[in-house]
C-alpha cells in the first residue's frame, strides 16, 4: 500500500510536482469528462436559447462593426475578404481566446466548495474546463463555416486546418489563464483585470480591422503575440496564405514550457489557496 507523507518541506521539488501533475492529468480523465458533461448538460437543460448564447456576444460585436463600417462612421482599410466574414471570424476567435483564458480560474472557482472538503485530482478541473471550451468552440466553428459558405467564399481544403489553428488559440489562452489562476483564486481583481485588459487588447489585435500598412499601430499589432492566434485560423479558413505563420509557431513553442510551469504552479498553489479559502 502507498504511504503518503505530508510535511512542510516536502512540497518543493519541482520535478516531482510536474510528474505528479502529469500523472493526475492522465488518471483523472473520467472525472474530467464527467464534470464537463455535467456542466454542459446542466447548462443546456436550464436554458431556452441554449446554444445560441455561445455566439450571441461575438455576433453582436460583429454586427456593431459591420454597421459602423457600412454607415461610414469609421473608415477601415481593406481586409482582403468580405468584411462581415472578416469581422465575424475575428470576434468569434476572440471570444474563444477569452473563454480559454478564463477557463482555468472559473472551473477551479466553481469547484471551491468541494476543494475545501474532498481530496481529488484537481487537474481534472483544468481538463474539464478545456473539454467545455472545446465543446463551445466546436459549436462556434460550425456556425462560422456556415456563415462563410453563405457569403459565397467557397470551399477551401485549408479549412480543414482551421480546428488545428483554433487549438493553438485554446492552448495559448489556457496557458495564460493557468499562470494567473493561483493569484486569481485569491483575489477577484484578476478576473476584472482580465476582462478589462482583453478589451484593450482587442483593439491592438486584427479582430475587427486589419493590421495597418505602417505607423505605430502597425508595429504594435505585428509584435502583439495574440495577432497570429487570430489571423492564422482566419487565414486558413478563408484560403489566404497565413502571413504570421512563423510567429504563430513561435508563440506556441514558447507556451510549452510555460504550460509545464503553470501546471507545477497550479499543483503547488492549490493547498495554499484552499487554506486561505476555508479558514
Amino acid at each position: 500500500m502507498e504511504t503518503r507523507t505530508y510535511r512542510k518541506d516536502n512540497q518543493l521539488q519541482l520535478g516531482r510536482l510536474l510528474q505528479a501533475s502529469l500523472r493526475d492529468l492522465f488518471q483523472s480523465r473520467f472525472l474530467a469528462t464527467q464534470l464537463a458533461v455535467r456542466d454542459i448538460k446542466a447548462q443546456y437543460r436550464q436554458s431556452f436559447l441554449g446554444i445560441l448564447w455561445a455566439f450571441i456576444t461575438p455576433l453582436m460585436t460583429a454586427l456593431v462593426w459591420i454597421v459602423l463600417r457600412q454607415t461610414g462612421t469609421v473608415a477601415l482599410s481593406d481586409t482582403g475578404i468580405p468584411y462581415p466574414v472578416y469581422v465575424f471570424s475575428g470576434t468569434l476567435i476572440w471570444s474563444i481566446i477569452i473563454e480559454a483564458i478564463n477557463s482555468p480560474i472559473s472551473s477551479t472557482n466553481s469547484a471551491k466548495s468541494i476543494l475545501t472538503k474532498i481530496n481529488f485530482p484537481k487537474e481534472a478541473l483544468l481538463v474539464s474546463g478545456i473539454f467545455k471550451l472545446l465543446f463551445n468552440s466546436f459549436v462556434k466553428v460550425i456556425l462560422l463555416v456556415v456563415f462563410i459558405l453563405f457569403y459565397g467564399m467557397g470551399w477551401h481544403w485549408s479549412m480543414l486546418l482551421f480546428p488545428l489553428g483554433m487549438l493553438g488559440a485554446v492552448f495559448v489562452g489556457t496557458t495564460l489563464g493557468l499562470l494567473l489562476t493561483p493569484i486569481g483564486l485569491l483575489y477577484k481583481d484578476i478576473n476584472k483585470l482580465i476582462s478589462f485588459g482583453m478589451q484593450f487588447l482587442m483593439y491592438a489585435s486584427p479582430v475587427v480591422y486589419a493590421v495597418p500598412k505602417s505607423g505605430l499601430m502597425h508595429t504594435i499589432m505585428s509584435y502583439n503575440p495574440v495577432t497570429p492566434l487570430v489571423t492564422v485560423p482566419r487565414d486558413v479558413l478563408t484560403g489566404v496564405f497565413p502571413e504570421f505563420l512563423g510567429y504563430y509557431g513561435l508563440v506556441l513553442l514558447a507556451c510549452i514550457p510555460l504550460l509545464f510551469f503553470g501546471l507545477v504552479l497550479y499543483r503547488f498553489s492549490i493547498p495554499i489557496v484552499v487554506e486561505r479559502l476555508s479558514a
Binding site: 504511504t3 505530508y6 448538460k41 466548495s113 468541494i114
Partner: peptide
C-alpha cells in the same frame, strides 16, 4: 487538503472522507 506548517503526517492506504455528502451534485440533473 492543506499542508502542515510543522510536523509530519504519514498515512498509508486509501483515505476515505465522510465529510461532505453529495459533493459534485448538480441540482438540475
Amino acid at each position: 487538503l492543506i499542508y502542515p506548517d510543522g510536523g509530519q503526517i504519514d498515512i498509508t492506504g486509501r483515505v476515505g472522507a465522510l465529510i461532505e455528502l453529495g459533493a459534485g451534485f448538480n441540482p438540475i440533473l
